[in-house]
Amino acid sequence: MTESRERAWGKLIPLLQGAQAEQGYLSREALRRIARELRVPESRVYGVATFYAQFKLTPVGRQRVMVCRGTACHVRGGARVLATVKKELGLQEGETAADLSYTLETVACIGACALAPCLVVNDQVYGRLTPQKVAELFDKRRTP
């Protein structure tokens, strides 16, 4: 394999990130297109796309809820926050609502540890949560 081909493969992850930023997830067509562009086997692209937690291969909801399960959040009651979110949204971890309104995920740490426990909805960080506040948060979003 020539050096330039090897270096070209270095673009794989940024290309996947770009495609996901556009569509919200990585469709089969997107994976195929990137494989062709880089002249890389599709299996290779699939292997990388499934290795990293950031990449979604199914459509995601308009509101992406990421509940932090970092150590500080865990010690300050993150598990109850997650349980409340699951109840409010009616979703399990990793699931997307049928109407694509919400996707629920957990993330290992968003780095806002002093405000534990936290969750993020799209880009907005919510900290110092209690089960009460979580319920209020989703109530507000349901009835704007």
């Binding site: 493969w9 270095g10 992850i13 940024p14 996947l16 990388v48 990293y52 950031q54 990449f55 993330v107």
Partner: peptide, 25 residues
């Protein structure tokens, strides 16, 4: 700038390098 794609193991230097090379970490 290279943005990580969500893998704790990529904090390990050789896995990080693999990631920049476009491979699994």
């Amino acid at each position: 700038i290279f943005e990580g794609a969500g893998a704790f193991v990529c904090g390990e230097e050789t896995a990080l390098i693999a990631s920049i090379e476009g491979k699994r970490g």
